[in-house]
């Protein structure tokens, strides 16, 4: 299964572990992620706050570059996912926007015809790969590992292309396939504060504390995320949250692709990309690591 892979800036920067583990898990599952050559920043939430048309053009350059391959675009970052998907949909719905974007792209000899579908890797693994194929690759089932499935906002909103917009189930499904136990986590699609952690920390920490509290109370051993910004906010803010709210959170926060890698028995450092956490994960991965070593012997 071939896809045009759009990585996004974040997974090439502070959140490399997401890309490394995503590429590894995809390879195991026969999902061929072919990186788009010379892609540019999708614009995230910031560009659209200053410019509307330019933001759409920025996203559309990537779509136009990808269109010649005629494959679905695979993203792992929900911000990239939603920005590319939104421009894709708005261009198709709105003739004036389409003409303006294509007039601008024409200046660099590009044109976007609107033929592509923008997907998130979670959608691809659950709906294209499917239960049987995923289960067949599990060599170290994550038995007994309680996971709070955290989608964040933009994996499912605003379009809800592959799951419910407020109560998604896809990640729970996938976690069960690899032997883990998803806990009940009602805040699973609520906001982590996004970039407000930088621009209005007080507001963001309230949201982050709420998520950590809900995850702890649900009895989760760790949180699984599908978003680099959520991962960073939830993991890197725990010290700040603890000092401000007088709490004692120490909640490992991993990418869902890292849990896949663990269950597939991939090498811990080079492919599951563990070892760069700010909150230690050793305790929770220990039982599964052992089975990895056994298998390799």
């Amino acid at each position: 299964m071939d896809y045009t892979y759009f990585p996004g800036c974040s997974v090439k920067g502070l959140n490399k572990s997401y890309e490394i583990s995503a590429l590894s898990a995809s390879k195991v599952l026969g999902v061929n992620l072919l990186e788009l050559n010379d892609w540019n920043c999708c614009g995230a939430t910031a560009y659209m706050s200053i410019y509307e048309l330019r933001a759409h053009i920025l996203a559309a350059r990537n779509l136009a570059l990808a269109e010649k391959y005629n494959r679905d675009i695979a993203t792992i970052c929900p911000a990239c996912y939603v920005v590319l998907d939104k421009t894709n949909r708005y261009i198709c719905e709105n003739k004036e926007l389409r003409e303006n974007v294509n007039a601008a792209l024409g200046e660099i000899n590009l044109k976007y015809y609107g033929s592509l579908k923008v997907r998130h890797l979670l959608d691809i693994i659950v709906n294209d790969v499917g239960e049987e194929a995923v289960k067949s690759k599990v060599t170290a089932p994550l038995k007994g590992l309680k996971v709070a499935p955290y989608y964040g906002c933009q994996t499912v909103r605003p379009f809800g292309a592959f799951d419910d917009k407020e109560n998604p189930q896809t990640m729970e499904q996938l976690l069960r396939w690899i032997g883990a136990e998803p806990v009940k986590f009602p805040l699973k699609a609520k906001c982590c504060g996004g970039m407000q952690r930088v621009t209005n920390e007080e507001a963001a920490l309230k949201l982050i504390e709420r998520l950590l509290k809900a995850a702890s109370r649900s009895g989760a051993d760790c949180i699984a995320t599908a978003c680099p910004l959520c991962q960073m906010n939830l993991e890197a803010s725990q010290d700040r949250v603890n000092s401000i709210f007088g709490t004692h959170y120490s909640m490992p926060t991993l990418y869902f692709t890292q849990l896949l890698g663990l269950a597939f028995g991939r090498p811990i450092e080079s492919e599951v990309a563990l070892g760069q956490e700010l909150v230690a994960v050793d305790k929770i991965i220990e039982p599964y690591k052992v089975s990895v070593i056994k298998r390799e012997r």
Binding site: K12, N40, C41, Y47, T199
Partner: peptide, 18 residues
């Protein structure tokens, strides 16, 4: 932050987070 973001994307085409 948004303006800084735009300036950096315009300069590099991508966002150097740090």
């Amino acid at each position: 932050l948004a303006k800084t973001f735009v300036e950096l994307v315009n300069k590099y085409g991508r966002i150097p987070e740090m």
